[in-house]
Write a protein that binds this DNA or RNA. Structure first.
Length: 584
DNA sequence: GCCGTTTTCGGCCCGACTGTTTTCAGTCG
């Protein structure tokens, strides 16, 4: 009981912060030279908490933390301490004994905890700036274990560190990866090439691009790879593995394997690490060994043949697990008893939702948007301009709405083609009421309600505000529920679980905003929404005709959240969609 | 730190590459 009260007291504590604290503990513990396994245990706990999301708070409430595999007595009590006080005494203590600069040094590639510790404790180098000074004077090369090359690498690493923080949007990374994979795929030596890693798993942010190629001549492939015109710097150049920085600044790693090893390498380098660990342990349980080169029975050195990833899963009596699901979040268990979802596909989308026209802050006219939607094969297009309160985006007033609806009626006169629907992205005002009164709102076919103001409200207020909008009977969809802008703006404080529960109770849909900077609702919560039978709406939030093609990213995230076609309202054919929303 | 059908001690995924060595430690994924 106590805990529940305490939880409210520190309501801004979320699972992400808890997981962050354990990441820190892992690093601190290595720097302070505790047992490396202790550090590994912290690291593991951090990943478990990250994957559990806010569920960890409920598990803590039920007092069942130690039932989670990887969390024992000590970590459980630390989690409780963080939830109750918002702090972790032992972490703060450790932090006090490590200079800030030492932590910053860890971000330099090729410097890990051991080297950083040595530089700090044995040579008194405790900041990136002082390390740079030492390198500039060629002092580092005189330290045992270092040489001229390390010195140059570290200087290059410091320069890169200053240039960018090292994370990329899924969409950006995908563009770079597609270009480079296309080049590599055209070489005679290459039989297959595929993007692997977190990019293939469609994480919303990625650190680098991982590629795997099948070839009989890895050496030649590596040589060509490091000499590609858009390679700016070579970090590693080996016979089967190389790492480079592309001119865009993103790191790109390439692995070359033989065609028979290719499915195993692809699986291995797609990850996630947690998924791989579990796959290995399943193999072990059945008397087999799985690694990036093959699957081996007993102590045999000869791999069992698998022509693709599906056969690897089959060998372990599992259904094929699509890459998006490989996060060790129940996919392996589901695959073992035929319970994986049949994921939604890009082609399943029949309507394009959440499109801004030149009636508010969009660039194109409704007729241009209609034409492009037709070209992309959509059956319907939901125009959603901003409402009057959002003056900064030229929100529509009542007169504009009348004019717009007349234009839409005219555009729909012709037979066939893409049907234009009358939508609005109405502002959720500070008190939770929705811009425009009921009469005006009911003139729209579909109402998306979104927050665009007063982002700094506290969690309870913001949650209540959005729930009030959900309970408004004119509202159909909640737009970009967290308001986050990846890499540039934090989400506003909301109790996402309560919001999903409210949507479930009121039969309202929640948007998966496909804009690459949003990808909001977060995929971790999509899984929960699906459990609560909440329908999702894949919106493009387009402000021009190009934006109509962004639905792809929304689909990727929907898949990552285990969604099937029927979970997504705009996978309905026009006839069903009109019927569902009583549109004439 | 965690964990246990090798269970309360003694393991803990593992392989490629680099830069430094002269057989290996550290980093990375």
């Amino acid at each position: 009981m106590n805990l529940i009260i305490e939880l409210e007291a520190s309501e801004n504590m979320d699972s992400l912060r808890i997981s962050e604290i354990f990441h820190e503990m892992a690093v601190f513990s290595e720097l302070l030279e505790e047992s490396p396994f202790k550090s590994r245990a912290y690291e593991k706990a951090a990943r478990i908490i990250e994957n559990l999301g806010d569920e960890i708070l409920e598990i803590a409430q039920r007092g069942e933390l130690t039932k989670v595999d990887g969390i024992g007595e000590k970590i459980a009590s630390k989690i409780k301490e963080i939830i109750e006080t918002g702090e972790l005494e032992s972490r703060n203590k450790m932090l006090l004994s490590i200079p800030d600069g030492v932590l910053e040094m860890l971000k330099i590639p090729s410097l890990g905890p051991k080297r950083v510790r040595g530089l700090w404790k044995d040579y008194g180098i405790s900041s990136v700036a002082s390390l740079k000074l030492v390198c500039d004077r060629h002092g580092l090369a005189k330290i045992p274990g270092y040489g001229a090359k390390m010195e140059r690498n570290i200087l290059a690493g410091i320069a890169m560190l200053r240039k960018n923080a090292g994370k990329w949007l899924l969409s950006e990374a995908w563009e770079f990866a597609s270009d480079i994979a296309k080049s590599i795929g055209s070489w005679d030596e290459v039989e297959s090439v595929k993007v692997a890693g977190s990019l293939r798993r469609r994480k919303e942010l990625v650190k680098d691009v991982d590629l795997v190629v099948a070839t009989q001549n890895p050496k030649a492939v590596m040589k060509k790879f490091v000499s590609l015109p858009f390679v700016e710097r070579v970090i590693q150049h080996g016979d089967t593995k190389s790492e480079v920085i592309l001119d865009s600044g993103i790191q790109c790693d390439l692995r070359a394997v033989s065609p028979s090893e290719y499915p195993f390498a692809l699986h291995h380098f797609t990850g996630s690490k947690e998924h791989n660990l579990k796959m290995r342990s399943i193999a072990k349980d059945s008397g087999m060994k799985l690694n990036e080169y093959g699957i081996f029975k007993g102590s045999s050195k000869k791999a069992l043949p698998c022509k693709d990833e599906a056969e690897i899963f089959k060998t372990l009596s599992l259904d094929y697990i699509p890459p998006e699901l490989r996060e060790d979040m129940g996919e392996i268990e589901a695959a073992s008893h035929g319970a994986l979802p049949k994921l939604i596909e890009e082609d399943d989308l029949k309507g394009v939702l959440h499109v801004h026209s030149n009636y508010s802050d969009g660039v194109n006219s409704i007729s241009e948007l209609k034409y492009e939607s037709e070209r992309l094969g959509y059956e319907y297009l939901l125009i959603c301009d901003h409402s009057k309160s959002l003056a900064i985006a030229n929100g529509m007033d009542e007169k504009d709405v009348v004019r717009q609806h007349q234009e839409i009626d005219r555009l729909n006169m012709g037979k066939g083609g893409c049907r234009v629907l009358k939508g609005i992205e109405a502002d959720i005002l500070g008190d939770g009421s929705v811009d425009f009164d009921g009469d005006m709102l009911s003139a729209f076919d579909i109402v998306i309600a979104s927050v665009h103001s007063k982002f700094k409200m506290d969690k309870t207020e913001m949650t209540d505000r959005i729930i009030r909008a959900i309970e408004n009977h004119d509202v159909d969809i909640i737009g970009h529920p967290s308001g986050r802008l990846l890499l540039s703006r934090e989400p506003y404080q909301i109790d996402t679980r309560k919001i999903i529960d409210a949507a479930s109770a009121n039969g309202k849909a929640i948007e998966i905003n496909s804009h690459p900077q949003r990808l909001d609702l977060d995929w971790r919560w999509i899984m929960y929404a699906r459990k609560k039978k909440v329908k999702l709406a894949i919106g493009v939030d387009a402000h021009d005709t190009f934006g109509l093609s962004l639905a792809k990213y929304g689909i990727w995230i929907a898949r990552k959240g285990w969604l099937e076609k029927d979970d997504v309202i705009n996978s309905m054919a026009i006839k069903d969609f009109l019927k569902r929303y009583s549109i004439k």
